[in-house]
Amino acid sequence: MRTEIHISALRKQYGAVTALDGLDLDVGEGELFGLLGPNGAGKTTTVGILTTRVRATSGEAIVAGKNVITEPVAARAQIGVVPQQPNPDLQLTVRENLVFHATYHGIPRAEASRRADALLERLGIADKGGAKAQTLSGGQKQRMMIARALTHEPRVLFLDEPTVGLDPQGRHGVWEILNDLRKQGRTIVMTTHYMEEADQLCDRVAIMDKGKLLALDRPAALRAQAPGETIIDVTLDRPFDGELPALNGITRAEVRGPVLRAYAPSPATGIPAILGFAESRGYTVRDIHLSRPSLETLFISLTGRKLA
């Protein structure tokens, strides 16, 4: 696989704040690559540098063969950007947004119109072509932003938190589009703080926190690195009172009011053990919830913090 994005020792300092602290990263051609991390992890700064809108303090970043720091103009010709905050041209219609965007990239008007129509069709908003952007729903607006970013057929597409603020339907719509784009072999870099999103969509995921890369692999491989225990939360009818003894099939357990949280190597032995114990003490179990080893549990084990 050819390297489409190469980042080495990339740093960004905003005054006393270090937003990026020596990031090294390679993204292959045709990959759907996820940058995962909480707010302030440095994801948006990374995308900002790769899309020439943020000046790196030091380090190197190459996108589609162009050095974004020394040849930003050439780099911009190769990239499409869907920003965190949709920023359509509000004075123009949806279709005009696409057509003008293409002409800003030097594409002749007739060809720009043809591409705009094809993209509106492909992204399922052909009926909205004549509408003003602010009349669109969140999901439609995001489709429009993706369509616009594709009109000049960039080699690399960047999406910063593409599903934030969308309802489940809108979110799945965007996922479908991204899956389609991946199948066509376009290199895609997206940031997200949704575990599920990174897990389901991305070929590889970089977990970032405080401007540093913590882990980088395929989602399945990352999940395998997560602490191997299932978390069993058992909700009782009243707060638990007393000490928890050692139980067979449970590595450790803690009391959180009426909730008993047990860490078990296997749910098959852990669940009967914790349920049996609660009932033996005269409690009624109201609810039981399992958390499988996931990117979320990995993130907690890497940083000690929850993701969002």
Binding site: R53, V73, N87, P88, N97, Y104, H105
Partner: peptide, 14 residues
């Protein structure tokens, strides 16, 4: 606030 110009700032020109 509108950030509309961001799209134009991504045009491949200085």
């Amino acid at each position: 606030f509108t950030k509309e110009i961001e799209d134009r700032l991504l045009a491949p020109v200085p």
